[in-house]
Design a protein around this nucleic acid. Structure first.
Lengths: 239, 239
DNA sequence: AAGTGGTCTAGACCACAGT
DNA sequence: CTGTGGTCTAGACCACTTG
């Protein structure tokens, strides 16, 4: 696997920021200096710096330079495409996953629409609950098009489906859309989750798209109110 | 105001996509063709295309081309830095804002920490409720550092504070962090909002940063459960 | 083999901040 | 004035898709 030059520079600078070699509120070397250091052109250096800026490590200011941001203070985005396992590891809690259902089903009309699929295509349906510190707090229903995920096993579902998809299959995830709303608890929620006296749950609908801009997964996540937390990090972009 | 070449191209292509001149699932002209058409270099064209991709208008696929996405189907991000007025206009509802409090205060310790401010600095505190279709559903508490927002009036608060800040003052907003959690309703919620029988509200903490990477605004938004909806649009980025 | 997007280069001019 | 980041250019090579 050959790595691009600007990715190499990005990773190097990222590590130096995280290890405090470049400390918060201080400035990075200028673009010209960095281009010299890494024996590359300025445009390539700029690509690396723009990535750092996009991911919240630095802030570029015209006429001044690139300022290192306080990574810890920003308390990084648990947003986007991060998998449950990664999040769990991050918060350092005792977690586990229980698979309640794993089946290859026909789709009803609504699901067909959500996945933008044809009549007759089949989907994997996976129902899982997530336990944190011994309490069942998240109910996940995942739907994968069989077209892109030919087979699935219980073992895979108990670990990270994302890892399996990205590493074992040759599929690249491109972007995801999330919709967060609050809904009334259903009998199923009460059955599968350790609901306290709550009348509502937080519902997260997640649409995952591939490189070719087709949806291939739809997930409905139902979170116990008191255990829900979502962080979003929005950068202003041109236009 | 001089516009950059790549922004011009971006806007032109964006309009052509929105007006269906370039239809969903079809391909844009190649980068070389576009570079010819706009009498510019390929790299500049690429900058425009990358912006379109970032904002969800197209999907670039190596070896193939740039495919136009279905803008309507994706139901665009109401996420990030969009102001209440913009969102309101988008959903086309009858909305209004009521200012309950507008004062220049000392900060307590907690707020000082949140705004990363020094002892003795003062903040504008603004308490507003938002009415949609005659019901009071959002309670906003904004805190602005006086250092960056010297003066505020009730009229400004009734309209868009963001518009005032970005247009009248010479301040550029750079990025924002949001934290979404669910909290128990307080007596203040019940007093100022049309709460039904709900025991909880959705709380959105919003930290807004300037170009120099300092926080200048902290907002706590409290939303009635049944009227809350948040859309997030996450693109995969390198690294 | 031809065409596409992805990376990289070396050089140029600009707008802005600090002196 | 100098140095910074922002934009733009013309050309090169690569990896990938498709015929």
């Amino acid at each position: 696997m050959k790595t691009n030059k600007f990715i190499t520079i990005y990773n190097d600078l990222k590590e130096k920021i995280q290890s405090n070699e470049y400390a918060p509120d201080h400035k990075l070397p200028s673009e010209n200096e960095l281009a010299d250091q890494y024996r590359t052109s300025r445009e390539t250096t700029r690509k690396a710096l723009n990535l750092l800026a996009q991911n919240g490590f630095i802030q570029k200011i015209k006429g001044k330079g690139s300022i290192v941001l306080d990574v810890n203070k920003m308390n990084f985005p648990v947003s986007g495409l991060v998998s449950f396992k990664e999040v769990a590891r991050k918060i350092g809690k005792e977690v586990s996953t229980h698979v309640h259902e794993l089946s290859l089903d026909e789709m009803d009309e609504e699901l067909q629409k959500k996945l933008n699929a044809k009549q007759g295509e089949k989907v994997w349906k996976v129902v899982r609950t997530r336990e944190i510190d011994g309490e069942s707090v998240i109910l996940d229903k995942d739907y994968f098009l069989q077209k892109t995920v030919p087979s699935l096993t219980k073992t895979i579902c108990e670990n990270s489906i994302y890892e399996y998809i990205e590493n074992e299959l040759n599929v690249t995830i491109s972007f995801a859309k999330k919709e967060i709303t609050v809904e009334e608890t259903t009998p199923e929620d009460i059955e599968l989750l350790d609901i306290k006296d709550h009348t509502h749950i937080v519902q997260v609908k997640n649409y995952v798209y591939l490189e070719d801009a087709n949806v291939f997964q739809y997930t409905e996540s139902r979170h116990r109110l008191d255990k829900f937390r979502f962080v979003d990090f929005a950068r202003r972009t041109h236009g």
